Measured scan of single mutants.
Amino acid sequence: MAAGGDHGSPDSYRSPLASRYASPEMCFVFSDRYKFRTWRQLWLWLAEAEQTLGLPITDEQIQEMKSNLENIDFKMAAEEEKRLRHDVMAHVHTFGHCCPKAAGIIHLGATSCYVGDNTDLIILRNALDLLLPKLARVISRLADFAKERASLPTLGFTHFQPAQLTTVGKRCCLWIQDLCMDLQNLKRVRDDLRFRGVKGTTGTQASFLQLFEGDDHKVEQLDKMVTEKAGFKRAFIITGQTYTRKVDIEVLSVLASLGASVHKICTDIRLLANLKEMEEPFEKQQIGSSAMPYKRNPMRSERCCSLARHLMTLVMDPLQTASVQWFERTLDDSANRRICLAEAFLTADTILNTLQNISEGLVVYPKVIERRIRQELPFMATENIIMAMVKAGGSRQDCHEKIRVLSQQAASVVKQEGGDNDLIERIQVDAYFSPIHSQLDHLLDPSSFTGRASQQVQRFLEEEVYPLLKPYESVMKVKAELCL
């Protein structure tokens, strides 16, 4: 049975990233139509530049190519590739079939990587351009969430054990800070992308030097003109047959890092959902379990974690691919890159769409948070109580021993009897502590235990987050809708 299948058929496997999760716009960027249309555009740009620099290419040939950029006979191309065992030459023939007058000058002087690699770089750039505003929107939604809850005390956790208090907004800023680093890295790697350009079979530009009869300047002009037509500021000066596969490492490393950030955020949300302090959106008709109707599973956060793990592992592909590119190139890269580049971007696209949807509907339960604080705060307040007693004339050592005994009794009630923490009640009825009984409410005010959390939130948002989001103001209103 021949390899390949009808990918629109229910009898043929289709990647869930495309069929179930990723956005239509990201799927289109990695589609065959987008790819092969870009090949034709690159052939047109090459012909236009070659004509401008004096090669015998007519206006009629150029116009014929322009008129057929979208006229792609995919069936013919597939048949040609089956016959020739070469995808680029299959599309040269297919393009030439609908451009008979231009057929002889299509791909003039070029090698397969002229269309293959340059198209990949265009796709990487455009895919990054799709991700950047999506990530900015996630940051914006979380920034709104953090600002609104900047002063809401909550129990902090280290080692997932109760620690000092923080605020809900401050905790959210930990998430935002990681995503801001990801946004900066995505922008950097996007701006650092260079075009492969017009380089020939081993990167020496020998074929173009021959076409222009040894004119170095025209060869350099050709490279520059096509690079500018493709919208790049610069091209690699040095290439082998391909652009260095280190570029793929750079791009997928940034995406993998984004995956790590999203995994951490969504894990926190899942843990908070278990504590009943916070939940992701839950639709009115949504079913959490087929057997347990009360369940409210954090399905979206779980999906993000599941896909983020996949995204983090994909960076190993370009690392290994770059390491086995012998001399000017081997074909070890080809099949692998067809999979890992598309999957990385479709996965990143999915987790950003999902995280935006989550961040637009996060639900906080202040009463649950308050109750958990009441359970733990008495123990945390013991040092403040000791200091207040010393100020009232008591002995630190005597007070410490009193607190120690009462704390152990209260802990026994919590752990052995399943009761509430009654340390404060014990202190309130103990005559030894009568000098500070009137101060206990103040000493137990949760806001006095959150330090500068709310001020940190305000400063972080104003100095770091809002300036970073400013270039994306025009796209901030787009909502994230999930079908599944």
Rank of each mutant, 00 (worst) to 15 (best):
F212A: 06
L174T: 09
A453W: 02
E328R: 01
Y114M: 06
T119G: 11
R196K: 10
C304P: 00
E228R: 11
E481S: 15
V368N: 04
K415M: 07
Q320H: 07
L46K: 01
Q397V: 06
S454I: 10
H7E: 10
S23K: 11
F232R: 01
G394M: 06
E370S: 10
S448M: 14
Y21V: 01
K276W: 03
L128S: 10
G418S: 03
N274P: 05
E148F: 11
L222G: 03
K391Q: 13
C173N: 00
L275M: 12
S31V: 03
D445G: 07
L443A: 05
L423R: 02
V324L: 10
G394A: 09
A342E: 06
N274T: 14
A102Y: 04
H217M: 10
A78W: 08
V138E: 14
Q408C: 13
R309D: 03
M389F: 07
I122M: 11
E481T: 14
S474E: 15
G259W: 00
C172G: 09
Q408G: 13
F157C: 06
T167S: 12
K391H: 13
D59P: 09
F74Y: 12
S15C: 14
D144Q: 15
P366W: 06
L252P: 03
H263L: 04
M26G: 01
V368A: 05
Y243D: 00
E220M: 11
E277M: 07
V429P: 02
G394S: 12
D120A: 06
H442F: 15
L319G: 02
G418L: 03
E79W: 11
T158C: 03
R396C: 04
S9A: 11
L44F: 06
L124Y: 09
E462K: 13
M278V: 12
D398S: 11
T313Q: 09
I358M: 14
C483H: 14
K199D: 01
M181C: 11
S112R: 00
L130N: 09
A77C: 09
D32Y: 09
A342M: 10
E417N: 09
A335C: 13
A335T: 11
F212M: 12
T313C: 10
W326M: 14
K470T: 14
G8L: 15
R452F: 07
K295R: 00
L132H: 15
T158G: 01
Y365Q: 12
D73P: 12
Q184H: 10
S15Y: 15
F379E: 01
L135S: 09
Q177M: 13
M476R: 15
K479S: 14
K35S: 06
A480F: 15
D430R: 06
G203S: 02
D349C: 09
L165T: 00
A431R: 14
A410S: 09
T350Y: 12
P293W: 02
G96W: 01
M225R: 11
F145C: 12
F145N: 08
T158E: 00
L423Y: 07
E220A: 11
G197Q: 01
S290Y: 03
E401G: 12
D191L: 07
L275I: 15
A102H: 01
T94V: 15
M76L: 09
S253G: 12
K218F: 08
K233I: 11
V429F: 13
R396Y: 05
T167A: 01
E213G: 14
K218S: 10
I72T: 07
A381I: 08
N384Q: 10
R426P: 00
L352I: 13
S447F: 15
C173L: 04
R188F: 11
Q63I: 10
I238V: 11
Q184S: 12
M65S: 04
R459K: 11
R188M: 07
D223S: 06
A163G: 13
L482V: 12
T204W: 01
W45T: 06
L307S: 09
V29S: 06
E473S: 15
V247G: 12
K199I: 00
L130R: 09
Y472R: 12
E228P: 04
E463P: 03
C399M: 06
I123N: 07
T347D: 09
T204F: 00
Q286G: 02
V189P: 06
V405T: 15
W43F: 09
T239S: 13
V363N: 06
T201W: 02
K199Q: 05
L209G: 10
M299R: 01
T154V: 08
I249A: 11
S412E: 14
R337Y: 03
Y365T: 07
Q184L: 11
K199L: 03
T382P: 01
P446D: 02
E80L: 06
V262H: 02
Q221F: 09
F36M: 14
I176R: 00
S323M: 09
C399E: 05
D191K: 07
F449M: 04
E383D: 03
E383S: 02
K66E: 08
A22C: 15
N71F: 10
P298S: 08
K264C: 05
A344Y: 03
L319H: 03
G156Y: 00
I339D: 03
S306Q: 03
G96N: 08
A230V: 06
T38S: 08
L124I: 08
Q397L: 07
M89Y: 07
P133Y: 15
L211H: 06
L311Y: 01
Q241P: 00
C173K: 00
Q286S: 01
Y466E: 12
E70N: 12
R14V: 15
F282L: 11
I424D: 07
E370Y: 11
C172W: 06
L211R: 04
F327T: 11
A392H: 13
K224N: 09
Q63H: 10
C304D: 04
